[in-house]
Measured scan of single mutants.
Amino acid sequence: LKKVVALYDYMPMNANDLQLRKGDEYFILEESNLPWWRARDKNGQEGYIPSNYVTEAE
């Protein structure tokens, strides 16, 4: 899975979204639905995130 790091905080707009915290790492599960990607956080929560809020992890 592709790993990304959040560049900004993101508060979910609806139940399908995943909250982002700046500096945290996330795994990308699906990239087909631009600009929204399906992601999983370190706690196993899954949801959609804005792809322009993250960058690929080193």
Score class of each variant (00 low, 15 high):
Val54Glu: 02
Asn16Glu: 12
Asn52Gly: 12
Lys2Arg: 13
Phe27Thr: 10
Glu25Trp: 14
Leu18Phe: 04
Val4Trp: 07
Arg21Asp: 06
Asp41Phe: 01
Trp37Val: 15
Gly47Tyr: 02
Thr55Phe: 10
Asn43Met: 12
Leu18Gly: 00
Lys42Ile: 10
Leu34Ala: 15
Asp24Glu: 15
Glu58Ser: 14
Ile49Met: 03
Arg40Lys: 10
Ser51Val: 10
Arg40Thr: 06
Leu7Tyr: 03
Lys2Pro: 05
Gln19Cys: 09
Val5Ile: 14
Val54Thr: 05
Phe27Lys: 04
Ala6Asn: 00
Pro12Glu: 03
Tyr8Phe: 13
Gly44Ala: 04
Tyr53Gln: 05
Gly23Cys: 06
Asp9Asn: 10
Pro35Leu: 15
Ile28Val: 10
Asn14Pro: 02
Asp9Phe: 03
Arg21Val: 15
Tyr10Ile: 03
Leu29Arg: 03
Arg40Gly: 03
Gln19Asn: 07
Glu56Tyr: 14
Glu46Ile: 10
Arg40Gln: 08
Tyr10Trp: 15
Glu31Thr: 11
Val54Asn: 01
Trp36Gln: 08
Ile49Tyr: 01
Gly47Phe: 03
Lys22Met: 09
Asn16Gly: 15
Glu58Arg: 07
Lys22Gly: 04
Val4Lys: 03
Ser32Ala: 11
Arg38Asp: 02
Pro12Ala: 06
Leu1Ala: 07
Asn16Ala: 12
Gly23Val: 01
Tyr53Lys: 05
Asp17Ser: 10
Ser32Val: 09
Leu20Val: 04
Leu1Met: 11
Arg38Val: 09
Gly23Pro: 01
Ser32Pro: 10
Ile49Gln: 00
Lys42Ala: 11
Gly44Gln: 05
Asn33Tyr: 10
Glu58Thr: 14
Ala15Ser: 12
Lys2Phe: 08
Asn33Met: 12
Leu7Phe: 03
Leu29Ala: 03
Gly47Trp: 02
Glu56Ala: 14
Tyr53Ile: 04
Thr55Ala: 12
Gly47Asn: 01
Asn43Cys: 11
Tyr10Phe: 12
Gly23Leu: 03
Trp36Ile: 08
Arg38Phe: 15
Gln45Cys: 12
Met13Pro: 07
Met11Thr: 14
Asp24Trp: 14
Tyr48Ser: 05
Lys2Ser: 04
Leu29Gln: 03
Trp37Phe: 10
Leu34Cys: 13
Ser51Asp: 03
Val4Gly: 02
Val4Asp: 00
Trp37Lys: 07
Ala15Thr: 12
Pro35Asn: 15
Asp41Met: 02
Ser51Phe: 14
Leu7Cys: 07
Tyr10His: 06
Leu20Cys: 02
Met13Leu: 14
Glu56Ile: 12
Ala57Thr: 12
Asn52Phe: 11
Arg21Ile: 15
Asp9Ser: 06
Trp36Ala: 06
Pro35Thr: 15
Phe27Asn: 04
Lys22Glu: 07
Lys22Asn: 04
Val4Met: 07
Asp24Tyr: 09
Ala57Pro: 12
Asp41Lys: 02
Thr55Ser: 10
Pro50Phe: 09
Ala57Leu: 14
Leu18Lys: 00
Glu31Val: 11
Gln19Val: 09
Tyr48Gln: 07
Leu7Thr: 05
Val5Tyr: 11
Asn16Trp: 15
Asn43Gly: 08
Ala6Asp: 00
Asn43Ile: 07
Asp41Ile: 00
Gly47Ile: 02
Ala15Gln: 12
Asn33Cys: 12
Met13Arg: 09
Glu46His: 04
Asp17Val: 09
Leu18Ile: 05
Gly44Pro: 00
Ile28Pro: 01
Glu30His: 08
Pro35Cys: 15
Asn43Ala: 10
Glu30Leu: 07
Ala6Arg: 00
Asn43Arg: 09
Val54Cys: 05
Asp17Lys: 08
Ala39His: 01
Tyr26His: 00
Asp41Glu: 03
Leu1Trp: 14
Ala39Leu: 06
Ala57Gln: 11
Pro50Met: 09
Tyr53Ala: 09
Asn14Tyr: 12
Glu25Gln: 10
Thr55His: 09
Leu20Glu: 00
Leu1Asp: 05
Tyr53Trp: 07
Val5Trp: 11
Trp36His: 08
Asn14Arg: 11
Val54His: 01
Arg38Met: 10
Asn14Asp: 10
Arg38Asn: 05
Leu29Val: 10
Glu30Arg: 05
Lys22Cys: 07
Glu25Arg: 05
Val54Ser: 01
Ile28Asp: 00
Asp17Ile: 08
Ser32Phe: 09
Asn14Cys: 11
Arg40Asp: 02
Leu7Glu: 03
Leu20Asp: 01
Glu58Met: 13
Asp41Thr: 05
Arg21Ser: 09
Ile49Glu: 00
Gly44Leu: 05
Tyr48Cys: 10
Ser51Arg: 13
Glu46Leu: 04
Pro50His: 08
Leu29Ser: 03
Lys2Thr: 07
Asp24His: 13
Asp41Pro: 00
Leu7Ser: 04
Trp36Gly: 05
Met13Cys: 11
Asn14Lys: 12
Ala15Pro: 14
Lys3Thr: 09
Asp41Trp: 01
Asp24Ser: 08
Asp24Ile: 05
Lys3Met: 09
Glu25Thr: 14
Glu31Ser: 13
Asn16Ser: 12
Tyr48His: 06
Asn43Trp: 13
